[in-house]
């Protein structure tokens, strides 16, 4: 029987790093109510599902194409008999973006201390050293509704002093652009494979909110290309990211039966 040893003693399931990341992404959606949760990457996609199945039941989830799904389905293509609760083609997504009833988790190629985000190009825009996927909906998302970020591999290449192209708008740029830009500008959290970061500081500079179990504060600081804000009491006061409960781990297995999350974050 799974979960039971030969002697019949229950074997406590130990959460792996990817499980912690999925829960940290789920927590981004806590208290969001009846809005569209959009998620890029495995941990965010799982997180949105976990949130809806536990503490944020009113979230709306799409199938990645044009349907809103009533069922909270495992990762992968939706089965043919899955219940559809709404129609959401791309143009309707744009309407939702502008209405503000959405929270997206995007994957930045570069992110700075103010939350400016780049997915357009590395180097000069006219002739990039590396062409990236393109600015997509990042400019509109960030000035219209809450935007969080997922960084599957925390490194100084992602966390940079200055991003090469501002696609997603950070706090400093939103303020400088005036009231129309800052009116609905709300950045959420930044979840990485090492830590949770946020902007809950007086000047909205990025803060180390928690480190994942088994990760040291120094490790996170060394993997970040700019100084992170730490608690006044010092590095020792940085909390540890919560681990999923046994019930949440079971849910994660149900929602990701193939264990795709362990491929995204192998630690």
């Amino acid at each position: 029987m799974s979960g039971t040893t030969a002697t019949g003693t229950a074997q406590p399931r130990v959460a792996r790093r990817a499980d912690v990341c999925a829960l940290a992404c789920a927590e981004a959606f806590r208290g969001e109510g009846e809005i569209l949760a959009s998620a890029f990457g495995t941990a965010p996609a799982l997180g949105a599902r976990l949130a809806r199945r536990s503490f944020a039941p009113d979230l709306l989830l799409s199938d990645g194409e044009a349907m809103l799904m009533a069922d909270t389905l495992p990762l992968g293509p939706a089965p043919a008999d899955a219940v559809v609760e709404g129609w959401l083609p791309f143009r309707a997504v744009f309407d939702v973006v502008a209405s503000g009833r959405r929270h997206v988790i995007m994957i930045p190629s570069q992110l700075d201390a103010h939350g400016n985000m780049n997915i357009s190009a590395i180097g000069q825009h006219a002739r990039p050293k590396a062409q990236l996927i393109g600015t997509r909906g990042a400019p509109g998302n960030t000035v219209n509704h809450r935007t969080s970020y997922w960084v599957p591999k925390h490194s100084p290449r992602v966390f940079v002093e200055k991003v090469d192209v501002v696609c997603g708008v950070g706090h400093d740029r939103a303020r400088a652009a005036g009231p129309a830009a800052s009116r609905f500008h709300r950045l959420g959290r930044v979840v990485t494979d090492l830590a949770v970061l946020d902007f809950d500081t007086p000047d909205n500079r990025m803060r180390l909110a928690s480190v994942h179990p088994g990760v040291s504060v120094d490790e996170v600081l060394a993997a970040t290309g700019f100084p992170l804000v730490l608690p006044e009491a010092g590095a020792a006061a940085v909390p540890t990211t919560p681990q999923p409960s046994a019930a949440q781990l079971e849910l994660l297995d149900l929602l990701d039966p193939k264990g795709l999350r362990y491929r995204e974050v192998p630690a």
Binding site: V97, A98, S120, H125, T135, G137, A138, P139, G140, T142, V143, N144, V165, V166, C167, G168, V169, R173, A174, A176, A177, G178, A180, A181, S182, F184, H185
Partner: peptide, 9 residues
């Protein structure tokens, strides 16, 4: 449109 404000668009 609001999109583009504050960004490098």
């Amino acid at each position: 449109i609001r999109a583009g404000l504050g960004s490098d668009v």
